[in-house]
Design a protein around this nucleic acid. Sequence first.
DNA 1: GTCCAATTGCGTAAAAATAACGCATTTTAT
DNA 2: ATAAAATGCGTTATTTTTACGCAATTGGAC
Lengths: 230, 230
Amino acid sequence: MNEQKFCYKYPHPSVTADCVIFGFDGVSIKVLLIQRGIEPFKGKWAFPGGFMKIDETAEECARRELEEETGLKNAAVEQFYTFSDVNRDPRERVVTVAHYALVRLSEVKGGDDAASARWFAMDEVPSLAFDHDRILRMAVNRLKERICFEPIGFELLPEVFTMTELQNLYEAILEVKFDRRNFYNKMLKLGILSEAEPRPANATNRTPNKYRFNAEKYAELKQKGFRLEF
Amino acid sequence: MNEQKFCYKYPHPSVTADCVIFGFDGVSIKVLLIQRGIEPFKGKWAFPGGFMKIDETAEECARRELEEETGLKNAAVEQFYTFSDVNRDPRERVVTVAHYALVRLSEVKGGDDAASARWFAMDEVPSLAFDHDRILRMAVNRLKERICFEPIGFELLPEVFTMTELQNLYEAILEVKFDRRNFYNKMLKLGILSEAEPRPANATNRTPNKYRFNAEKYAELKQKGFRLEF
DNA sequence: GTCCAATTGCGTAAAAATAACGCATTTTAT
DNA sequence: ATAAAATGCGTTATTTTTACGCAATTGGAC
């Protein structure tokens, strides 16, 4: 017997949410990929993703996928583009709402099927399933744009970090090099960092200051209309 | 008899594309709205939009809506967000891929049903149908962001324009005021404008220079990695 | 242990970009 | 006829960005 019980006058595409999960290991940006166990594209790597349920938004769907793979509930997730090419899935018409998530690698537990999931550095990413190559390019571009104007970078770092770690993150994402001292001055002048602990009197060099992102200060500044700019 | 002949194992949302159409009349930004003739939200204003066909992309769908309302085939259209709130349409689950289009008002012909279509200045826009208030806010924000980094503003102006017209456009979109002389210098220094016709020797003041957007120059500059910045 | 290279905090000076404003001329509106 | 507004083309002051110096300290090589 046929179980196709949801019927419509016109053909409806399937809607999925995909989630490009970015992490940062202190040196380079990584992305979490899943190896496909079934056709099509069996054996190829792809982003976590799945069908949107009828009672959840696309973002909720993306968060669900994120949690399944990483155990994380509260990461930063943002929708960045919807891909609707007619033949992007060979089986049927599928429209996917693509998101990216920024996670702290230290907080990531292995997902349900860790066996088939792996972190890839950006320059190690193989050719992907479906149109996921294009999705990744777009995600990276959006991340680059975003990190210049919103302090999303902090979502990738530990709560407490050094200025060098923060600079490494910016350099990894934007693929540029900054002068260490200018980066330091600029960041501090922005006023969105607070010292994690007061620098001890006997502190010497080579014992870097630790900072944390100050969300309250940022909210204040943002209200006054302020941009990060890099 | 029932015509519901497209059947699926799981419920599928409808997918639509909406198109926020922006124009510029030399003074203020306008948006094209359609008055709904049927429930829900009968009598309320909304953006042109409609169901995505099974063999077209969301952008093609948005362009189709745009052409129906304005007669324009080649306007600038960009997807900016997909709205998937569960109850955004009271009838059924509808996911909409929202786009904005930038059109030259002079090129717009009345659409199929011009009777129910009207241009509204941004500060005249009434409360809209569905979640279109939110869609408009987001479209405007995206437009503001975009115009700072991509020369999309020229899509709203006639081919040939004066510096004052260009400034008025930027001021209308960004809701700020620029010093006329600084704006003039900055724009010229960017190098993406060419004089529409050489300024005649007998030209006097009060006969403003005419410019046009130089796409070739812009492509060159963009390649070298350059940003507009305002 | 000694020594060198790398790291960190804190500055300063030059260069570039931005913002503020001047002025003569010409046209439109009153 | 006259005042007000628009235009082209500047200049100057201020702010921001960039380039770089320097001393102190640590980790690693040997």
